[in-house]
Design a protein around this nucleic acid. Sequence first.
DNA 1: GTCTATAGGCTGATAGAC
DNA 2: GTCTATCAGCCTATAGAC
Lengths: 227, 227
Amino acid sequence: MVDKTPRTTRRRRDAEATQRKLVVAGTRLFAERGYDGVALSAIAARAGVNKAMVSYHFGGKRKLYLAIVTATFADIVARAETLPASGRPAPDLLRELIALIAETATRRTPDFPAMMLREVLAGGKRLGSETVAYPLRVAAVVRRIVERGVREGSFRPVDPLLTHLSLVGSLLFFFATTRLRERLMAEGRLRANAADGASYVKHMQDLLIDGLAARRNRSRRAARRAS
Amino acid sequence: MVDKTPRTTRRRRDAEATQRKLVVAGTRLFAERGYDGVALSAIAARAGVNKAMVSYHFGGKRKLYLAIVTATFADIVARAETLPASGRPAPDLLRELIALIAETATRRTPDFPAMMLREVLAGGKRLGSETVAYPLRVAAVVRRIVERGVREGSFRPVDPLLTHLSLVGSLLFFFATTRLRERLMAEGRLRANAADGASYVKHMQDLLIDGLAARRNRSRRAARRAS
DNA sequence: GTCTATAGGCTGATAGAC
DNA sequence: GTCTATCAGCCTATAGAC
């Protein structure tokens, strides 16, 4: 069983494995406890490698963190941006965007919501101008969908940016708080039903579609407002 | 101009002033940078007092933090819980709850959204069982309002917990990200209009009321779903 | 009550052996 | 590439002077 792979190739493969393990461990820990809440020794221990490897491969804690955040954000933004290209009706696109974010948050990049919220709370202070732009790119996707819906007459004339904030905010919040809900349910303080991801996705889809829908008869509402 | 107040009284007043200054400075800094991101020296400097005062008056950094979080949460929860007692229609109560959270977040306790989000991201690990219960109490308020609306026929039969999560999540997100939006607007990367608190409150009120409203004619929707 | 001085622990980074 | 050993810096907490 002698490995006949050339030495340099083998080393490169090992190095990539080390980097991958550090990114995986760091993603989880940074999402859970935040940048300042995680020691390099904790990341190295979870990754099963030596903590000196962080400096060697990434050039320090901050650069490892930036690599992780950038990769995590790039994932979801790239997927979201493929959506509005299709010519489907705006309500369908909105439903799909919600499902896409949820799928990313539960399966593909489960630590994305927590990392995103933490960065946004920090005012993007740690991020470069390119990374700070990721939220703007998601906002642009929502804007295109909403504007199409208003044009088509399926949505009432609603502000795209405010719609983006309410949509993304509630989704990030829901998935970032999964751990807390699980704790409360385990302690018997929260009814365990109906708070799973699938139910919430459907809830948000219905809420948004109905809430943004063009109003058929504005009479009652208009009357109340005039009073 | 001799102060004739008894010495002990004067000292007590000074102590309270010191404590208040530490709480004010700590609230702001903890909200901005999180528990691990703030050094006691920074809080003391901002408060204009010596950092040894933290141990003397509060018994350490963690206890100062807990005092701040508890006070901040108690404020909004107490105000929210007065709402459903009034016999007004559910949609009105929902509008008022949204406005109340916004008012708290902008004027009365502007650091509440950030602190709340940070704690919830941490899974409530730092909090005692009493403090962790605060989100549950807000959820209970929303549940009572939603259940009343469903009973009255003004809301469709919607899950109160999911409604709570979408409502509170989007509001906390909006107000906790004000600083980031301001940065992006200052850099000219975000149109500066329409993203103020008042506009968002109105947006969320309309979105929720319309999105939860009992559907007058379900025919079109039901047909699409059956297909 | 407040301040200074300092103890003691932990963190991120790196030099050097392998 | 990886590991061990070590360092300087910053942190929280506290003893003791005022």
